[in-house]
Simulated scan of single mutants.
Amino acid sequence: MTEPLFLKPVFQPKIWGGRKLETEFGYDLPDGDIGELWAISAHPHGPSTIENGPLAGKTLAQAWRDDQDYFGHQPGKVFPLLTKILDAEDSLSVQVHPDDTYAAAHEAPGELGKTESWYVISAEPGAYLIYGHHAKTRAELEAMIKAGQWDDLLRKVPVKTGDFFYVPSGTIHALNKGIMVLETQQSSDTTYRLYDYDRTDKAGHKRELHLQQSIDVTTVPHVDPKLNIQTAKVQDATITTFVQPPMSPFFAVYRIVLAGNLNQTAQAPYTLVSVLNGEGTFVADGGSSPIKRGMDFIIPNQITEWKFSGNLEMIVSTPGNEA
């Protein structure tokens, strides 16, 4: 096999979305406020479609079920990862996600928990995140949520372009206005909202809150993950390792900035790639494929060695030992 699996993304309208995916990335968006691009997804709420090769026309979910040669015959019933780009034209709800155990007990069959991470593609001056909380006990957390003491409860963290955040399940969090991120996460669409700024949709309806679930799953007290971000020069590339197992059990995430050539050997059953900037070529087994900004693809199990050539910025991820 000489080419990766190129994927057609799925666009998700959101009350907090905008149009930057069109103006900055050149995607042909549907009408409305588009908050999310599901770039590599097998989730039933938005599965990507394979655009090339023998699997062309299949969704990623169908390929995972029927064509495991491409993924190294992994044991999970569902493709475990999902990559997105989020455009926060307005602030997202303050939210928290469950772990696998809670999701299995309370959500639809097959739904995973949700640990995620954010690479900040861009952030306007003064932008900040909600990341964590100040409650010392679960009783204090519950009291502050029910009293609406958001300024006292929520932890605000300044953010700038190029930052990286690891967001384990149980972490209260929210992107705020003026931020665009590439998100690498478990394949889950379960979100428990605890605060949504009392805003309404175009029909005048408030979105549903999930206060008890949020109280149930939030980690108390909040503790920042101890990241060990490392950057290395490899051939003509600078590779930054943001997270990897064992600290991050569900995925590893890297950033590759290339000016020239980079030869690589597979370190996982398959590899996910999102091209954030530039253009170049993917070369494997004597074949080549042009790649450029806005493309998302999977390097399948059959390709064990490859070369990137060109001027490229990419976010690359691989499944972890619990994916």
Rank of each mutant, 00 (worst) to 15 (best):
Thr171Tyr: 10
Leu129Ala: 11
Asn301His: 13
Glu124Ser: 10
Asp66Arg: 14
Ala266Asp: 03
Val275Ser: 00
Ile34Ala: 00
Asp236Leu: 11
Val223Arg: 15
Trp150Ala: 13
Glu51Ser: 11
Met314Tyr: 08
Met295Ile: 02
Ser48Asp: 04
Gln68Leu: 12
Ser187Val: 02
Leu21Ala: 01
Phe25His: 14
Arg65Asp: 13
Pro4Cys: 11
Lys177Asp: 14
Ala147Pro: 10
Leu60Lys: 10
Thr318Ile: 15
Pro54Gly: 11
Ser248Lys: 07
Ser274Ala: 14
Ala268Val: 11
Gly72Met: 04
Thr161His: 01
Gly17Trp: 01
Pro225Met: 15
Ile315Glu: 00
His43Met: 12
Phe6Leu: 13
Asp33Thr: 09
Thr241Trp: 06
Gln213Trp: 01
Val96Thr: 04
Val96Gly: 05
Asp296His: 15
Thr161Tyr: 06
Leu276Gly: 08
Thr83Glu: 15
Asp196Val: 09
His134Leu: 04
Gln68Val: 12
His97Ser: 05
Phe250Arg: 07
Ser274Val: 14
Ile40Ser: 11
Gly17Asn: 02
Ala252Trp: 00
Thr200Trp: 05
Ala268Gly: 11
Lys177Asn: 08
Pro319Asn: 06
Ala232His: 14
Ala104Trp: 06
Leu272Phe: 00
Ile299Gly: 09
Leu194Asn: 00
Gly280Glu: 06
Trp150Asn: 10
Asp198Tyr: 13
Asp67Val: 06
Met144Leu: 15
Pro75His: 04
Val220Leu: 09
Gly35Met: 04
Thr265Phe: 07
His134Thr: 03
His106Met: 02
Thr59Phe: 11
Phe308Trp: 06
Thr190Lys: 12
Ala63His: 07
Met144Ser: 10
Tyr195Asn: 04
Leu153Gln: 04
Lys14Arg: 15
Leu21Gly: 00
Ile298Gly: 02
Met1Ile: 08
Ile130Lys: 00
Gly35Arg: 03
Glu183Cys: 04
Gln264Gly: 01
Asn301Pro: 14
Asp100Gly: 06
Asn277Arg: 14
Ala143Pro: 00
Ala103Trp: 00
Gly286Ala: 06
Leu272Cys: 01
Ala135Thr: 13
Thr23His: 09
Pro319Ala: 02
Ala323Cys: 05
Gly113Cys: 10
Lys160Tyr: 01
His45Ile: 09
Thr190Val: 15
Leu211Pro: 03
Ile291Cys: 05
Leu86Asn: 03
Ile256Arg: 03
Phe308Val: 01
Leu82Asp: 01
Pro158Leu: 12
Phe71Lys: 05
Ala323Tyr: 01
Arg65His: 07
Glu22Trp: 08
Gly162Ser: 08
Thr161Glu: 15
Thr200His: 14
Val157Ala: 07
Pro80Thr: 05
Gly260Cys: 13
Gln186Met: 13
Ser317Asp: 08
Gly278Glu: 07
Pro75Trp: 03
Trp38Met: 13
Tyr131Glu: 06
